[in-house]
Design a protein around this nucleic acid. Structure first.
Lengths: 212, 212
DNA sequence: CGGTTAATTGAACGCATTCAACACGAGTGG
DNA sequence: CCACTCGTGTTGAATGCGTTCAATTAACCG
């Protein structure tokens, strides 16, 4: 089973659990869904659009935690507080569930399953990200990131919903290094950019090799 | 409530849940508790000793996921497989619970609470680590690490159960950079090393300032 | 179109790495 | 008890990758 198929297979459970318990809400581009250090009292499921989580340190450095796409559940921060803020990268439709409601339905197979699966995915992405940030070079980081995006839309052209700064803050690099690396990847005929926000993978094998 | 007190407060629940369901097991120094890509079918609670989790990439680079101390629960990898291996850094006593047993006791407040708390702690540490690796320099990384160790034994001398290479692989640095940074911190009278494996914090305020 | 923000490119710098040599400590055998 | 060895840690010098600072170009939006 490919990752793509696994993704599809678990969506129904998530969808119905959130449809039963959740209330829909829309967020405009750049609107904050919740702030850093807000009380974590809800779960969120993204219906459309793209969301970014990020933490800003006291001296202004920013680390992007992750990007979330339609079908993804976010806001799972396990503590009483959201350690990362969540912001809408584009206009978004979100289904929101109060954690107390989820707790009331504890034992409900569907609800438990939805939260468990989302937590699982969240932790695995976090673990992978630690390896990327701890042990990979700039080209490897950017290549890994492009692969992550591209395998959602296998084959065709891929849209980058985030700007270079967001990519940099996610990958632990500077905006200049990201830009240079993308230019280099294009020069090496690994990817091809139709515009700054849209690319296509030219040499999938090479891209995967570069991601290490 | 200090982190120290929170730590103490939640230990009882964890202890009793694992005592009821778990079987004790001992591991010798350097022994593997589970390997990378092993089936994840058990949870582990450390009674004594220190455990390290790590992942090795295809080309040999190693990233240490975390270090676990008495009272900590590890092996929580959410997927069907352990994405990180676990090894005993010292001789260890561990209580082991099969996940199927935990599932059978689902709804058991004590068991659920134990796993939930452990998962919470795990995710928060992962999130903090992402920020450290993504946005902190060498001195900040090492200072943060020393603080994490020192606040377990506030006041007195602190033992380093791991070698320099483990510290480096945890912090995303090289062994030389770790060594140099420690030397520098000692030169600046922030910490004092009695031996390579034992130190004391001389200037706590400065150490925290350096951790950023 | 003009005005503004985002992205690219260039050049110099600096931090961490790499490569290499040396010191230290623990364990072993003469 | 000392000499030897091996693993671990420290220190030095040179390199390089990514950053920083600065200028230019491209994209976006009124």
């Amino acid at each position: 089973m490919t990752p793509m198929q696994a993704e599809q297979a678990k969506k129904p459970a998530l969808t119905t659990a959130f449809e039963r318990l959740g209330t829909p809400m829309a967020f405009a581009k750049n609107q904050e869904v919740y702030a850093q250090d807000d009380d974590a009292e809800r779960f969120y499921r993204l219906v459309s659009g793209v969301v970014r989580t990020s933490r800003v340190t006291a001296d202004g450095r920013r680390q992007v935690g992750d990007f979330y796409y339609p079908g993804d559940v976010f806001g799972l921060d396990p503590g009483p507080l959201h350690r990362f803020a969540a912001e809408a990268l584009t206009d978004c439709d979100v289904q929101i569930v109060r954690r107390s409601a989820v707790r009331a339905f504890a034992g409900d197979v569907e609800v438990d399953r939805a939260i468990l699966d989302a937590t699982r995915q969240e932790m695995e992405r976090l673990q992978d990200h630690v390896v990327l940030l701890g042990r990979k070079g700039a080209i490897e980081r950017v290549a890994s990131f492009l692969i992550g995006l591209a395998q959602r839309r296998e084959g065709g052209p891929v849209d980058l919903p985030m700007g270079r700064q967001d990519m940099a803050d996610y990958l632990g690099l500077t905006i200049e290094t990201v830009s240079r690396t993308l230019t280099q990847l294009q020069g090496d005929a690994v990817v091809k950019f139709a515009s700054t926000r849209r690319f296509q993978v030219s040499d999938w094998g090479e891209l995967e090799a570069l991601a290490a």
